[in-house]
Structures are given as C-alpha cells and as structure tokens.
Design a binder for these strands. Structure first.
Lengths: 212, 212
DNA sequence: AATCTCAAAAATTTTGAAATTTCTTGAAAT
DNA sequence: ATTTCAAGAAATTTCAAAATTTTTGAGATT
C-alpha cells in the first residue's frame, strides 16, 4: 500500500494548529515516519511544504521545528493580520456585490450559531475546531472580494499562524469570552454590510487588539 | 564529490529573477539535474524551497513552473509591495534612530552612484544586477527598523517577485528612465530622514505607481 | 470533424540506503 | 572548574531506482 502525502500534510497541519507539538519542538522525519507508515523523505517533503505556510520552521542542515510561540511573535502575527484584514475588507466593501453580501451573511450566521453553543460552555474543547473553521470562513469571506490574490493568499497563511499562536496560549474561556467575540463579529458584519469601510476597519481592530 | 544545494538554490534564484526561464515554463528536476551534476531529488528539494518565496509555482502531482507573468499579476505584486513598504517605512520612521539614518544614507549613496552610471546608458544590461542589488538594499534598509519580522520577511519575498515580474516586461530604459527613478529615490530618502511619514508614503507610492 | 478509449511514454512521487554534516560525550589539558 | 578536542552517535541530505500518476497520441466510435 502506498501513502498519500496529502493526508500526511493535512494531519500534520491539524496537529500543528492544535498544539499537538510543543512550540519549538523538533520534528524529525525519521520519527514521524513510523506513525504514518511512509519513508522519512516523504515526511521531509511534507514538512518543506508546511514551512511555506509558516507553521513549521526550516533551517538548512538542522531540520524542522514546530513554530515557536512567544508574546512578541503573537503580537507580530496579530499586527500583520490587522494590516491585511483591514486592507482586504476595505477593498471587498468597494468591490463586493450582492452575492458577496449574501455569502458574508451566511458565513456570519453559521459562526454566530456555533458561538452561541460555545457560550454555554458545555464542551468548549471539542467544539473548538468547528468554531475555528467557521471563524476562518467568516474572515476569509470578508476579504474575498479584495482583488488581490496575493493578499488573500498571504492572509490565509497568517490566519493559520495566528491560530497556532493562540492555541498554545493559556486562556480562560470564561462565560463571557465568546459573548464578547460574538459582539465583535456582529460589529464587523454590520459595518461591512452597511458599506462603511472606516467602521469596518475599526471593528476589525477592536476584534484583534486584545492580542497586541 | 557531493553537491551543495545552496549553490543550486542561489543559481536557480538568480536565473528566475533574470527571466532565464520563460514565464510559466516547466521546471523539470530531471532536466535541471544534468546541468548541476546532482540527482533529480536534490533539484526537487531546491524547487520546493523556492516555491516558498513565490518565484516558483508548485502543484502537487504536476510539478514546478517558473512563475507566470501577466499585467494583472504585476499590478497585484506592485500593489502589495506598496502596502507593505508604506507600512514598514512608517514604522521605521517612528522607531529608527541615528544608526538607521546613517545606514539609509549609505544605501542611498551607493544606489545613486550606480544609477548615475546607468543613466549614461553604456552597458545597462550588464550593470542591471548590480543596480538590482543596490535597489533592494536601499528599500530593505528603509523598512529595516519596522518592528515586525513578519512584515520584513514578507517584503523580501515580494521584492523578488516584483523583480521577476519586471524583468520579463519589455521596457525602454530610455535616457531619462533612470533619471526619473533617481529623483524618486531621492524623494523617499529625503522624506524618511525628515521623519515625515506622510511624505514618505506618498514618495513610495509615486515611485511604484507606474506598475499599477 | 469531434469525441472517446486505452496503451505507451513521460513526469512526479516514494523508497531505502549511503554519504555528509551536526550534535553529544567524555577524557585530556589549561 | 573550565575549555578544548576527538571519537562516536544522531540527524540531515543526497542518491538512484522503483512505483505511481499524469500526459500524449494513435485508432476506434459517434
């Protein structure tokens, strides 16, 4: 039986985004090989591709590491995300049409549904990945009509790096954490649908500033 | 004798940045292997790393290509570069000290020297790579005191992609092409040293707007 | 003429092992 | 006690060949 490297890629990506590896932990192809039943070089190949996204650090002649986390890096990622998302949203507001509004409404509706369940606080851990997917879909829809493929692609990379930084950060998802998040998402979608770029930029900033 | 892949990396990078490959041309490890006297896998490895920078397109199961060029992509790269460089320069102006001013002056001095020779138009082609290096050094120094490693790294990638788009574009380096460029660089450095962030942003925009 | 099938050719991916480099360990010297 | 150095261990890189997938193109079918 032959191995499909896309499965390895996706599994490693998921593990990196859920802090299954300690930040900065070495990722040795020879070790991971066993778990996936493939050769070490196949793992190496996958890790090189993951380093493109920024989830993995690669240094020539000294291998791979799960990306390190630190307050500085967290701030850096958050700051960069704000730059990209405010610009992308501004352009989307200019370019997007009715179809975009509909898609954004849909994505926001789903996200709010998930967040209302999260706010109950029953099994936050388990629903986290569902929420994460919904959140990503919402934010990517927000900037989807920005006419720069480069910005959208970079944003996608930054988003996963942002999440990687978040998951390895101890936080209390106290009762009103998701309620606050929900209000912030509401402010973003309201401003976007009202075509108020300035308000939208401010809402994005307010949403992310806690990470600065 | 064993091959050092960093040499292959650098040679391929140079060739990609000087349009030695046609835009969109397939880059087959098995073909390039011979020229470098290494195995096809080593070339594959290098191409994967180059795809991280954006010089090479990689699609799973269908190999590598020199990045395609088009007016749309050129505009996209230019627009993104403006976004990053204006932001980076603004932060540098805030954070940079005397040391930064000195480095920027030095980089600008060298660049101007090269450009004055280029303006004579004797052997533009040969001096192009010298100019390119000086230009890159100047722009990277400009944003070097921005406190976001992520922005600086992304800018470095975008710069080489920008150059890749430029070189495959037919232009006349008419007598006053480099004179205009020189004036634009002067405006940028003047604004930066005067700590006038608004003027600097405008100067950067004016420098790059011809590519929009 | 256009579309479809399918075998041959070409290209990519994977493998397992060899070659090389980096890291570790512990004894000898300062 | 600290530093230096060499030998061994461990990890990374490279190789060449095998396995797999994609592309090509000739011949058959509509």
């Amino acid at each position: 039986m032959r191995i499909d490297s896309t499965e390895i890629y996706e599994d490693l990506q998921r593990r990196l985004m859920t802090a299954a590896f300690k930040p900065g932990e070495r990722l040795k192809p020879a070790d991971l090989q066993g778990a996936y039943g493939c050769s070490a070089n196949t793992v190496r190949d996958v890790l090189l591709r993951l380093s493109k996204v920024g989830l993995v650090d690669f240094e020539i002649q000294r291998g791979f590491r799960a990306r390190a986390t630190s307050p500085e890096r967290r701030r850096d990622v958050a700051k960069f995300r704000i730059l990209l998302e405010t610009e992308g949203a501004t352009q989307s507001i200019m370019n997007g049409g009715l179809e975009w509004e509909a898609e954004l409404s849909a994505a926001h509706h789903k996200l709010r549904h998930v967040e209302q369940r999260m706010a109950l606080g029953d099994n936050v851990e388990q629903e986290m990945s569902v929420w994460s997917d919904a959140e990503r879909a919402f934010h990517e829809t927000l900037i989807s009509c920005c006419d720069s493929p480069l910005l959208r692609e970079t944003y996608a990379n930054i988003y996963v790096q942002f999440r990687q930084q978040m998951v390895s950060q101890k936080r209390d998802f106290g009762s009103n954490y998701f309620q606050a998040i929900t209000r912030e998402h509401q402010a973003i979608v309201d401003a976007a649908l009202a075509r108020d770029a300035d308000a939208c930029r401010k809402a994005i900033y307010d949403h992310l500033k806690r990470n600065l």
